[in-house]
Design a protein around this nucleic acid. Structure first.
Lengths: 388, 388
DNA sequence: CTGAAAGCGCTAACAA
DNA sequence: TTGTTAGCGCTTTCAG
C-alpha cells in the first residue's frame, strides 16, 4: 500500500489541493463548513497522512528539536531530564531527535552536522551530571545547555543550584540540633565534579551562618562510591568521641549508602546515634535505605522542562531578545503564553530537601554542656569571637 | 546567515548541481579527480550543509528510526536499551526519534501518526520492563518490539530469557551446595510481571533437575520493593531451623536489598549463614551491597542492539523475508553483512549470572547429615545431630 | 566526463 | 469561496 498524497484527497473530495491543505491545517475559516466535512471524510477514507518532510521542506521548519547528550546510559536519573524535555516538546507539537555521543568529540561533530541537516528548530546540549563543558564547534548559537554550563559565555543554560542545596542539607542537620557536622566529599582529583565544590561551599556557608566554625577534621574525602563513603565514614567514627561528628552530610546518596554500612557495622543506629543526609534523591537507593534516607533532590525533570521551554522560546530569558531566532513562533499557540517573564539566561534550579528518617536530634550524651552558660539564650556559640 | 544550497556550491565551483551532488555523495567516480576537489573546496568555503529534508523528500527515505516507549523515565536501566539501539543506528547512519508516551493510548496514537508523517525508515516499540503489550492501531507491520512481546502475533520482538535466567540463578545456589532454596516472588496480582512467572518456572525446573522437590513453604511473595523483600525474608527466617532456607533467590535486586536488611538485622552473615542471589544487576544497587550481590543481568544493551539491527534489516529473522520492507538496503554498506544468519523472530536473550560475593556454601550445621553416610570425611560438623 | 530538467509532497501567493 | 501555480533543495534520468 502506497502513501496517499494530498492530491488523492483532493480528487476524492472533488476539490483542489489548496482547499485540502487549508482545511486540514485549520487555516482561516473561509472554506464552507460543507466542503470542510467533505475534505475530512475524503482524507479519512483514502487514509491520508500528511508528509512532515514535504511540509518541512516547504516551510523550512521541521518541528523537531535535537538533543545531544553524552552518556544517556550511564546515569540512572538521566531519564527524568529527557522526560521533562520530552513532555514540553510534545505539548508544543515537536518531536525529539536524540543523539547520544558517548562523549566522543568526533561523534559529537557528526551529530551536530546531522541535526543541522535535519533542520531541527532548536538544539539542547545535555550532560548527564552537572559540569562545565567545552562548546563544540558548529553548535547553533541558540543551543540551550542542560545540566551543564558552557565554558564559553553567551549561551543559555540550566543547572542545579548545588550551593543552595549544600546550604539546605547542612541547615537540615543544624536545625535538628547538630553542631559537629561532617562533609563527606569526593576526592580532590582534577575531574572532581563542580557540584562537590558547590555543595561544600554551601556547607561552609550554612555552618558559618549558624556561628559554627568549620572543622577541617570533619571534611573528609573518598571515591564517589558506596565503598568510598564507607571508608570515609569509618575514619570519622575513629575520631575521639568528643570531636566525632553527630551529623554526616554526604556528597551523594551513593556515598551515603556506604556511610550506612559503616555506621551499622559499628553497631550505631541512624538517626539515634548519628544523622545522615545525602544528595541526589536517587531512585531505588535513597528511599530504600534502612531507615529511608533524608536527602536533597536534583530537579532533573524540572531542568529538562526549563531547557526545552527556553529552546522553543515559550519561556523568556535574558538572552532571548538578543539571539537570532527568527520564525520560531507558533501562530496556533499564540506565542509567549508563559507568564514567568524574563529569567536569567544561566538558570540555577532549586534542589529541595526530601525529608525521610535519617536525620534526628543528636544523642544527648554527646552534646557538650556549655561551660559559661550564664545568661546565654540564643544559639550563641562560645567559639564565635565577637570581632576579630 | 542563511543556509548555503547546493546551487551555491555549484556556482562557486563553476559546475552544475548534478556534479556537486555526484561528488558529495560519492556516486560513481565518473567525475574527474580535479573537479571533485574543486567541488569539495567550494562546499567547504560556502559552508554547505546538505538538507536531509530535501534529500528525504526526493528519495522518500529519511534515514531516521522512531522509537516509541512507555516511561523512559521510570526505570533506571532503560538507558542501556536506548544506548544499544542508538549505537546501531549511528553505525548505520540513522538518527533516532524518541517518543515517550507515558503509557497513554492517545499520546501513543499521536506518536504513531507523527512518526509516519516523518517517514521514519523503521519503528521500534519499547517497553521499559518485560511484558506483554497490546499492539496499538496503526503501528507499522515491520515494527520491532523491544523488551516486550506483542499480544498479536506476526511481529518481531526481543525479550530477556527470564526462564533460563531463573534456572541459572537457582543452579548457582545448587552448585554452591544449597538444597533448601527459597524463591522470593512478587505478589500474585493481575499486573504481576510475566518475568515473575518465568523466573519461578526456571527455579522449579532447576530444582527438579537437581532432584530437589520444590517446597511450597519456600515460595514466598512480597511487594516489588526493598520493603517487600525484607518482609518476605523475615517470614522465611522465622521458619524452624531445619526447614529454613540456606539460599535465597530474589525476584530482583531491589527485593534482594530488602533481604540483606532482614538478614543483617538477625545478626546473620552473607554468605556464611545465608546466600542470596538477585536479578537485574541494577547499577548502583547490586554491586554496592555489602557484600556485593551476585545477580543475573538483564541484557538491556544487547536487546537494544538486536532490536535496532532487526529493524534496520542488518540482521535477518524468521519474518524478514515475509515482511514488506522495500528499499531499505544501504548500497554503501553492502547489505546483509551479519554472518549470524536467520534468527527466530521472537528472540529470547540470555541473562548472564554476575558472580559477586553473596553466594557461598551453606553453613555446615544446617546441612542435614546424610543418614547413610558411611565413609564421609570432610566438613562433618560436631553440632549436627545424627538424626532428628 | 558533465549538464538540463523533472519531480518528491506540500504551502502560500495570487487569480478567479 | 475556491483553484492555479511556483517553488522549498535535492537526486536522478536522460542528453549531450
Amino acid at each position: 500500500m502506497v502513501r496517499a498524497r494530498i492530491s488523492d484527497v483532493a480528487v476524492a473530495a472533488g476539490v483542489s489541493v489548496t482547499t485540502v491543505s487549508l482545511v486540514l491545517n485549520d487555516v482561516e475559516s473561509r472554506i464552507s463548513e460543507e466542503t470542510r466535512n467533505r475534505v475530512r471524510e475524503a482524507a479519512a477514507t483514502v487514509g491520508y497522512a500528511p508528509s512532515a518532510v514535504a511540509r518541512g521542506l516547504r516551510q523550512q521548519r521541521m518541528r523537531t528539536v535535537g538533543i545531544i547528550s553524552d552518556q544517556i546510559a550511564t546515569t540512572p536519573y538521566a531519564g527524568r531530564m529527557l522526560a521533562g524535555a520530552q513532555d514540553v516538546a510534545r505539548d508544543n507539537g515537536k518531536l525529539v531527535i536524540l543523539v547520544d555521543t558517548g562523549g566522543m568529540a568526533d561523534i559529537e561533530q557528526d551529530a551536530i552536522r546531522a541535526l543541522a541537516s535535519q533542520q531541527v528548530d532548536a538544539t539542547i546540549y545535555a550532560a548527564m551530571w552537572h559540569r562545565v563543558v567545552e562548546v563544540p564547534d558548529g553548535l547553533p548559537a541558540d543551543t540551550v545547555f542542560l545540566d551543564c554550563r558552557p565554558r564559553t559565555p553567551g549561551f543559555r543554560s540550566v543547572v542545579p543550584d548545588d550551593r543552595a542545596g549544600g546550604v539546605a542539607a547542612t541547615r537540615e542537620l543544624i536545625a535538628a540540633g547538630h553542631r559537629r557536622i561532617a562533609f563527606i566529599d569526593t576526592e580532590l582529583s582534577p575531574q572532581r565534579p563542580i557540584a562537590a565544590d558547590l555543595r561544600h561551599a554551601g556547607y561552609v556557608e550554612a555552618l558559618s551562618d549558624a556561628g559554627i566554625v568549620p572543622d577541617a577534621a570533619l571534611h573528609v574525602h573518598g571515591e564517589i562510591t558506596a565503598g568510598g563513603g564507607r571508608a570515609a565514614t569509618e575514619r570519622l567514627l575513629d575520631l575521639p568521641v568528643e570531636v566525632r561528628p553527630t551529623g554526616l552530610f554526604c556528597f551523594n546518596d551513593r556515598m551515603a549508602a556506604g556511610a550506612y554500612i559503616a555506621v551499622h557495622r559499628r553497631g550505631l543506629r541512624i538517626p539515634q546515634d548519628i544523622s545522615i543526609i545525602g544528595y541526589d534523591d536517587q531512585q531505588l537507593v535513597a528511599a530504600e535505605q534502612d531507615p529511608p534516607l533524608t536527602t536533597v533532590a536534583l530537579p532533573h525533570y524540572a531542568m529538562g522542562r526549563w531547557a526545552m521551554e527556553v529552546a522553543l522560546g515559550v519561556r523568556a530569558t535574558a538572552f532571548s531578545g538578543a539571539l537570532p531566532r527568527p520564525g520560531t513562533r507558533e501562530p496556533e499557540h499564540g506565542g509567549d503564553t508563559s507568564a514567568s517573564g524574563e529569567e536569567d539566561a544561566n538558570h540555577q534550579m532549586e534542589c529541595p530537601v526530601i525529608r525521610r528518617d535519617s536525620v534526628g536530634p543528636p544523642p544527648a550524651q554527646v552534646a557538650k554542656p556549655n561551660r559559661r552558660r550564664t545568661s546565654q539564650h540564643t544559639e550563641r556559640p562560645p567559639s564565635a569571637a565577637p570581632d576579630r
